[in-house]
Write a protein that binds this DNA or RNA. Sequence first.
RNA 1: GGCCCCAUCGUCUAACGGUUAGGACGCCAGGUUCUCAUCCUGGCAAUCGGAGUUCGAUUCUCCGUGGGGUCACCA
Length: 475
Amino acid sequence: MHKVRTRFAPSPTGYLHIGGLRTALFSYLWAKKNQGEFLIRIEDTDQERLVPGADKQLIETLNQLGIKSNEEIKHQSNRLKLYQKATDKLIDHHFAYRCFCSPERLDQVRQEQQKNKQVPKYDRHCLDLSPEETDQKIKAGEKFVVRFKIPTNEIITAEDKVYGKISVHSKNLDDFVILKSNKFPTYHLASVVDDHDMRITHVIRGEEWMPSLPKHILLYNALDYAQPIFVHLPLLLNPDKSKLSKRQGDVAVEDYLNKGYIIEALINYVALLGWNPGNDKEFFLVDDLIKEFSLDKINKAGAVFDIKKLNWFNAEYIKKIIQQSDKRFNQLVDSAEKFLGKNAHQAKKVLLLFGSRIDSLSQLAQNSEFLFKLPDYPKEMLVFKKSDLTKTTEGLNLALGVLGKIHHSEWSQDKINTTIEDIMSKRKLNPGDIFWPLRVACSGLEKSPSPIELLEFLGKDEALLRIKQAINKLK
RNA sequence: GGCCCCAUCGUCUAACGGUUAGGACGCCAGGUUCUCAUCCUGGCAAUCGGAGUUCGAUUCUCCGUGGGGUCACCA
């Protein structure tokens, strides 16, 4: 067996689709697992749908996720000669023929067939054109496409690594176009020629390609190419089980990145869609995936993309990273800065405070707003349900007194905590008489991180100011 | 509609033909004597239906049903 070579071949018509990410990831993992090579190829053969710059965008996003091509990235639009050559070969060997039918005529034929409840299929109007007729039409400048000639009575069998054998009778196949009138190839021709030329060993792609697999088999045979191993991946689905699409949520990987989903979570979650390690393990960094990935454990049934589980993975990874204090943590702080619009010092503190309370980094700004600007709140909020006005006022005044004595340089969670605990037990107060009102004083909220954390974050001056404001409210 | 594919909790999934059908997300309840989150404990919840093969089918075969994909000079 030759060295494993896989590829991801998107068409540059938009951003990277989450399903595309899964396909790219599986291809990448399989190549890396086998010490092989992973390549990226841009399938820009459709002049109409091509979006300028989309190729760069696609590659950049893949790069961000760590999925990089081992070789120079090829664009199909630069390889027209290759497809032309293959086409000539097919025509010479009578596997293909020129078709001069106008789009209008084809439309008409199709409509007619549909009216008669027939399967829409090219009627082979140009199949038996003589060489002379053909030459004449070419000389006259008539436009033509090249069609592949489907054998008449044959059962075409293909082998897929995950779905097994699939076979189709040739009568169900249409004489599909391989070269358009503008001399650009269609997907079928281009992908077969390129995969062969690039020595791809495993063609890994979405299940939506399965219906055209027999066509590709025919092409491989006609061109006398050895077949690669085909690996069709089960579809990613919307909650209603239809193919994952816009409309029912975000499908662009970029959207998720912009919302503060982190790379590890995205990759981990997507890897588990249609694949499993065969045991209960579910946390996988890319290196773990490379070790454990296997084609045999790929599922057949489509998988619903569940944002709730992605959220969970994201929250888990955020918590994990915060517990570390390495390079990755600093990267996370960098991202947090962007979402918060604050400096690194503040971003780090906010992250520590809310790391266990968020699904994604984008929630940071909203959750931490009160730290930078105290919201107005009703004075009743200061009184805990098991406390009363007198005790609350006492608690706040005591806190103000003892906290005021802490030196700026000693303003830490430990110091604040022992100080408060100390005065609380001395005066026989309950936590609800002092901790609760302190939190409300600091946050203006009923739900928040602990008052100790908040006091420390705010700093002595701002903390005392907010406590004074609370006391004034109660007067 | 033709062709192709698929089918275990709501979702992602595990289970050499023999298990009380397991795990995870979500959800619900309880605990960690200030709230929330984290964390811990527990709970609810599935083999699409019918035949057949077999001592025994989630597992193998067939039929049905359901769902999906695809039928372009798009990929």
